[in-house]
Nucleic acid binder design. Structure first.
Length: 423
RNA sequence: AGAGGAGUGGCAGAGUGGUCGAAUGCGGUGGUCUUGAAAACCAUUGUACCGCGAGGUACCGGGGGUUCGAAUCCCUCCUCCUCUGCCA
């Protein structure tokens, strides 16, 4: 969440940033925060003063009791009743004000980076770069949902039978293909200095709040109500929350982690005919990279992460393009996000396979993720993450782009992992 | 899951109602000494909020309660340990 101190210091920049996102009443949102903060401070001042007085009286009573002056102590006691009830009242006001302030802050998204183009929908995203040639497929080329049936490598009907729509079953070479991709991505990340993590794939409510999925995207996560736990929508949640309430030692920085997990998304309201096959699923595999950085390094880290993702796509011989998300398409918690889309030749569509973001201090502020520098001051760190990569759409693009009369050719980089070069 | 025990500062570990934010030891930092290092000695060493500052307030697993006053008593939840049961 945003820092109140920064809202005070740079209110006009914050108003402009929120308006860029299309928020009409940005100024009044921030004014509400400021008013609540002021109220909280005033209440605390009075409360602290009263508590100091109450503490002082208690010490007096203690001293009198020690001296055996019981009667005098009893007299002093009578003075405290009023103070007590007032303090209880003030404590309640402070508590409720703090809750209101937090709720207000939870509902305000991050301020977009200056370089973020203004826009409303994904059509306004800025094309940064297109890399590779689009595949030149014959007329007979078919989309991946036909290929997987033909080669019997992924079965949606079986998934429907045992679970429901959007939970495919990977079989034989399809399963091996997916496992090969996971290992390839993990090895590539390890080589780039990311330490591997295998986190739990269910998280508690505090973790959901820490990275910002709650309360913003509550309806998008599977909620295990009997235990009040959530199935993760991305490994970002458990991995970044590893650092919740942590003051990192300076020599431990930068933090770089990679994790492979299944991801679960309800995708409520976003289903339709345009999301056939592997394009959108309720459960999918993803390898995620996460970095925790000092403020002054975080944009270099963002570039480094983008280069890592680009390197993966190059090795997989996939044509891709990089988009800078516009203000309207930018995630709630992000300052700057680059999306990577691969071209899937038979359905003739660009598919998002990675999203690389810098959250600056927005998550760190919720997480209380800080470090202590040489000057002994604790300060918030920046968090970043990116998919490297989301598996199903990569599979879809490889299947479609590499199809020929005999089957499907595996990219050279993957063959050591699959153990076969054709499906 | 049942019975019992326990959760204190970076770690270890005192403290069972009154200057306790908390003894002591280890560790960390600064210094004295030393050619240098070790040892020894001295000092310092949590986080957050409020305040221009002096300073104040809160925090001893989380939450609630009793009391003028709670690390200390009560309730509740969580976690860990031991025993019993179950289980990949």
């Amino acid at each position: 969440m945003l820092l109140v101190s920064q809202i005070i210091a740079e209110k006009s920049r914050f108003v402009a940033g929120l308006e860029k996102r299309g928020i009409k009443d940005a100024e009044s949102m921030l004014d509400e925060v400021l008013a609540l903060d002021k109220k909280r401070k005033n209440t605390q001042q009075e409360l602290d003063q009263n508590l100091a007085e109450a503490n002082s009286i208690s010490r007096q009573i203690g001293a009198l009791m020690k001296e055996g002056k019981r009667d005098e102590a009893e007299v002093v006691k009578t003075k405290t009743a009023e103070l007590r009830s007032r303090n209880k009242e003030l404590a309640e006001i402070k508590e409720s004000t703090q809750e209101a302030l937090k709720a207000a802050l939870y509902n305000i998204p991050n301020i977009p980076h200056d370089s973020v183009p203004k826009g409303l929908t994904d059509e306004d995203n800025e094309l940064v770069e297109t890399v590779g040639d689009l595949p030149d497929l014959p007329e007979s080329a078919v989309p991946h949902w036909d290929l997987i049936k033909k080669h019997d490598i992924i079965d949606f009907d079986l998934g429907i039978k045992i679970t429901g729509a959007g939970f495919p079953v990977y079989k034989g070479k399809g399963a091996r293909f997916q496992r090969a991709l996971v290992n390839f991505f993990l090895d590539q990340a390890a080589a780039a200095g990311y330490g591997e993590i295998q986190p739990p794939i269910v998280v508690n409510e505090a973790s959901g709040y820490g990275t910002g999925q709650l309360p913003d995207k509550e309806g998008q996560m599977y909620h295990i109500t009997v235990e009040d736990l959530y199935l993760i929508p991305t490994a970002e949640v458990p991995i970044t929350n590893l650092y919740r309430d942590v003051i990192v030692q300076e020599d431990q920085l930068p933090v770089k982690h990679v994790g492979f997990t299944p991801c679960f998304r309800r995708e409520a309201g976003s289903w339709g005919a345009h999301v056939r096959g592997l394009n959108r699923l309720h459960q999918f595999d993803k390898v995620e990279i996460v970095q925790v950085r000092k403020a002054e390094e975080s944009y270099d880290a963002l570039t480094e992460m983008c280069e890592h993702v680009a390197g993966l796509l190059n090795k997989l011989e996939l044509p891709y393009r990089i988009l800078r998300l516009c203000s309207g398409d930018l995630g709630f918690t992000s300052v700057l996000t680059y999306d990577f889309e691969v071209y899937s030749g038979a359905q003739k569509k660009w598919l998002e396979v990675s999203s690389v973001s810098n959250f600056e201090t927005y998550q760190a502020n919720r997480l209380k993720l800080r470090y202590k520098g040489a000057d002994k001051k604790t300060q918030l760190l920046h968090t970043l993450n990116g998919s490297a990569m989301a598996l199903p759409r990569i599979m879809a693009a490889i299947l479609e782009n590499n199809q020929d009369a005999e089957g499907i050719r595996m990219p050279d980089a993957l063959v050591p992992y699959t153990g076969f070069d054709r499906i």
